[in-house]
Design a protein around this nucleic acid. Structure first.
Lengths: 225, 225
DNA sequence: ATTCATAATTATGGATGCAGTATTATTGCA
DNA sequence: TGCAATAATACTGCATCCATAATTATGAAT
């Protein structure tokens, strides 16, 4: 009747994984800025741990593409070039498009209600121009679709790609009008899902992602001017 | 005029990376069999290194999906279920299809000659029924296409997926007739590339991968009987 | 004053040691 | 003889330590 006493320690993620997660947060927030050097000693001291689990965490982040390990020269936060973005986004569009397509095929009415509920949040936050909450709900919408599509491997690739894309997170959603446009695109995707048109859902999701890339490009051009 | 004296040490991969590569080889060869426990001490001793770099290597392999790390319980070689394969292959087909499509768009005549040369090897090894060399040439063909397509991110995802698929390498190519069939599919792909029909090239590559999955499925059913 | 060489400092990568936990073996009891 | 409880063993995960290489600072020479 107890809650598995052993599970307490089993459920506790390894220290290196906890550290990896903390570092991800700091990288996404640009607290650790792209291109900046990661001071192992300082971080280990700050977290009150030794360098060993920290270094293991950095290995994980490196394989996720969030940092790059330069042998004998330390670890640096990844800087994405425009070319990198032009490579990642089309792939992301391909993968997310597939998810939408597959989700449309398997969609139950319960699933749809769930998506509808999240979409309503999107409408709300778009109305109040709350980019942060919009972003959050947006992510949950996409995650829900992934779950419905039911391909864990595909999901994992998307999650990884999303991490990479989040490196650029001075949020294209903050571009004037982008939030409204994103919402409109979501409406169209939801519409295709309701109609059960998997091809169309896939196509619209695909284009939605590319549209996100364009918004980001505009933002970068603007910030350069 | 010198050849950069520093590059000697820079070129040397980190120890953990060397170890990771050695482990990959042993995993693919089933020297370390799926599901088997990885004895850190024994391996470290065998390689004449400490457990530290070995453990770092295992972190990398874990993020590649070749092993799974069970907290406090050690590291095990990944076992792929049929469901896993049914998830990975369609994604692989999607990605490789995209590569073929993109490569077809960018293909120069020099590129085509290169592909043709590799394909000729395939014909050779198919004729002599040399599965190992066929496999090798096959991999080079796909790699060449990836290079031509010119999307490094896409390439990386495919490379990762290929590693996962290689876990099952009791080679579907060894299935009777599969080698011939694979060759025929390659001919068709090359044909589409020559004609510059990117859509067709993508489609055929996509189907080629799914065909590979089917061959593997037959093999597994057969081995169960 | 600038540049190059050399010395001092600092950081990385790897080895070793140790505490805590899981696993296995052993012993006692039903 | 089988099962449970407990003791012994073994392994994982983290910390600490050390050697080597890279970076920076210092000083000399042009």
């Amino acid at each position: 009747m107890n809650a598995r006493p052993a599970s307490a320690s089993l459920n506790a993620p390894a220290l290196y994984e906890q550290v990896a997660e903390r570092l991800r947060t700091r990288i996404f927030s640009h607290d650790l800025a792209p291109g900046s050097w990661i001071d192992e000693q300082a971080l280990a001291q700050e977290y009150g741990i030794s360098r060993t689990p920290l270094r293991e965490a950095l290995k994980v982040l490196a394989s996720e593409g969030l940092v790059i390990l330069k042998p004998r020269r330390g670890c640096y936060v990844t800087e994405l070039s425009e070319q990198d973005l032009d490579e990642v986004f089309p792939v992301m569009a391909l993968l997310e498009g597939r998810v939408a397509e597959e989700a449309a095929r398997r969609l139950t009415s319960a699933d749809f209600s769930r998506l509808q509920a999240i979409h309503d949040e999107l409408e709300q936050h778009a109305a109040t121009n709350d980019a942060d909450r919009f972003f959050d709900a947006n992510q949950r919408f996409h995650s829900a679709l992934q779950e419905i599509a039911g391909n864990r491997y595909l999901s994992q690739l998307i999650d990884d790609a999303r991490k990479v894309i989040k490196l650029t997170r001075r949020d294209s959603l903050r571009l004037d009008g982008r939030l409204r446009q994103s919402l409109a695109e979501h409406r169209d995707i939801l519409d295709a899902l309701r109609r059960g048109d998997s091809g169309l859902a896939g196509q619209r999701m695909h284009d939605h992602l590319l549209s996100g890339r364009e918004a980001l490009a505009k933002l970068h051009v603007a910030s350069r001017a």
